[in-house]
C-alpha cells in the first residue's frame, strides 16, 4: 500500500499534472484511510487559492489602523 510520503507527493503533483488512473486509484484508497493525508490534500487547494488571492494584491490591503488617523481632529 502507498505510504503517506508517496500520497502527499501525488497530492502535490496533481496540482501540476494529470495523475494516471492507477495513481488516482491508489491515492484515493490511501486518502480514504488516512485523515492526515486527507487534510493535506485539502490544504493543497487552500494553498493555491491563498497564493492567487495574494497575487491579486489581496494580501496587501492597507491596514485599518493606518486609517485611524483620519478620525483624529
Amino acid at each position: 500500500m502507498m505510504d503517506c510520503k508517496q500520497a502527499t507527493r501525488l497530492l502535490s503533483e496533481q496540482q501540476d499534472r494529470n495523475l494516471s488512473r492507477r495513481e488516482k486509484f491508489a491515492l484515493k484508497f490511501h486518502v480514504f484511510m488516512c485523515k492526515a493525508c486527507r487534510n493535506f490534500g485539502q490544504q493543497m487547494g487552500t494553498l493555491r487559492d491563498l497564493a492567487r488571492s495574494y497575487a491579486k494584491g489581496e494580501g496587501n490591503t492597507p491596514r485599518q489602523s493606518e486609517d485611524s488617523n483620519s478620525n483624529d481632529k
Partner: peptide, 29 residues
C-alpha cells in the same frame, strides 16, 4: 515522515476548518 513513510505524530496535518479558517485578516497575510 518516519522510516516507514508515515507522518510523525506531531507533524500530521490537521483540519484547517477551525475558527481561524477562512479568515484572511491582515495578521494572516
Amino acid at each position: 515522515f518516519d522510516s516507514g513513510g508515515h507522518w510523525h505524530k506531531a507533524e500530521r496535518p490537521s483540519s484547517w476548518s477551525g475558527p481561524q479558517g477562512g479568515v484572511h485578516s491582515d495578521h494572516f497575510w
